[in-house]
Amino acid sequence: MKLFDSAFGIHQQALDLRGQQMEIIARNIANSDTPHFKARDLDFKAVLNETQSGHSLKTTQSMHIKSASSMGQGDLVYTIPYNTSADGNTVELSVEQAKYGKAAAEYQATLRFLEGSMSGVRKALRGD
């Protein structure tokens, strides 16, 4: 269905990525007391560009090995901490909390956009 493919636009992929980003920040917060743990983050722009343009290895067989990024591993970047810590942990709790809040807000924003386009489609289907 062409209508539904384009109706929700970028927001379908964006919602998925926002969720993924929240998961990665949740990992950082869970490991805020783990020695030598390195905080990571998702390079949102790079991943979204990739999903949009489809620049990934083409696989013609289901057994072909996918590239790291298409398995959701390759686009993780290590965050650079503002301060150093004695145990080699690079998670800064307040920074991660702020990031988590931002990601949650952005997730809600994407949801709102989806709600909007959904009610549009609904209106078109109902025809009133």
């Binding site: 007391d33 709790l93 949650a104 809600q108 949801l111 989806l114």
Partner: peptide, 27 residues
């Protein structure tokens, strides 16, 4: 105190995720 704070942090993480999940369901 440090572990209590970390515990609270993670409870808050769960709360936010749960809220967002419910809002997604509301779609």
């Amino acid at each position: 105190m440090s572990s209590a704070r970390s515990y609270q942090n993670n409870v808050e993480v769960i709360n936010t995720a749960r809220e967002l999940m419910m809002r997604t369901l509301d779609l």
